[in-house]
């Protein structure tokens, strides 16, 4: 269980995460949705100790991340940020092997290597394992990063927009993979997603943020509803039930929304 208690972050005078209190249940997939600039990435970075918070506490399985040893945390919780530019020239396999670092401290055992090969296989990277990262497409690189995090084999996996750059097929198989990790291995997966329909189809729990606050949370059925979505995104979104799942149809916008201007930097 991740307990987030009254966490805030401000840059200068603009408060980007504003007293968020939230409990993320163990096991299963929690998706965080919300418009650009809602503070999703900032919140995730603070929960994973990448970014210091101005106020508040975060506890992972009762362990306060402010006091816990970083290498102990690295065996419990892993994080993949939204934008990852890497200048180091590594092969896919080398990168993924570094995912074992918290366990192997740079001396990978046979068991570590098995983890690596399995993660490469899960992400469909077998054929690319010996290619350098700077010679891959964006989507292939994204899969390599996820393989690395998977290889870290932590109870908690935090992924900020893991579907970035992925085509439909790979996006679906990524979500199925994460679903499997939650169902079969009891992992707790926390995702930031932009596609509300992936959130609807694969999450156990959805958290909606806007302007630095959590404004709604609940099951997909409770969140993927026209009135709730309108509040989150300022957009009229029709919802249909397809295959038993609520699916938002937002491509056409609505009469009123279509006439609106492009949203501003925080909109």
């Amino acid at each position: 269980m991740i307990e987030i208690e009254n966490v805030s972050k401000a840059y200068g005078r603009s408060v980007v995460v504003d007293g968020v209190t939230l409990t993320l249940p163990s096991r299963g997939i929690t998706s965080i949705i919300g418009p650009n600039g809602a503070g999703k990435s900032t919140l995730l970075s603070m929960v994973s100790r990448l970014l210091p918070m101005d106020r508040g506490h975060v506890r992972v399985d009762g362990l306060d991340i402010a006091d816990a040893a970083s290498d102990v945390l690295a065996r419990r919780l892993s994080i993949l940020r939204q934008d990852n530019s890497i200048s180091v020239r590594l092969t896919v396999r080398e990168l993924v092997t570094f995912g074992r670092y918290p366990h192997s401290k740079g001396r990978p055992t046979a068991a570590d290597r098995e983890h690596v090969e399995r993660a490469l296989g899960y992400l469909g990277l077998d054929g690319l394992a010996d290619r350098f990262l700077d010679e891959l497409s964006g989507g292939q690189r994204q899969r390599a990063f996820v393989a690395m995090v998977l290889c870290q084999d932590t109870d908690y996996m935090l992924l900020d927009e893991p579907l970035n750059n992925l085509d439909m097929k790979h996006a679906v198989s990524m979500m199925q993979l994460l679903r499997g990790a939650a169902d079969e291995f009891g992992k707790t997966v926390v995702l930031v997603l932009h596609d509300i329909n992936f959130a609807s189809c694969y999450s156990d729990h959805i958290v909606a943020m806007r302007d630095g606050r959590v404004i709604h949370q609940g099951s997909p059925e409770a969140l993927i509803r026209p009135d709730v979505l309108a509040e989150i995104y300022d957009l009229d979104i029709a919802v249909e039930t397809i295959g038993g799942r609520p699916i938002g149809i937002y491509y056409l916008g609505s009469g009123s929304a279509r006439r609106q201007q492009m949203p501003g930097p925080n909109g």
Binding site: R81, L90, F98
Partner: peptide, 14 residues
């Protein structure tokens, strides 16, 4: 090498 991946990767790996 880990540090070469950047501060975030380094922290994530403990």
């Amino acid at each position: 090498t880990v540090a070469g991946l950047g501060e975030d990767f380094t922290t994530n790996l403990g």
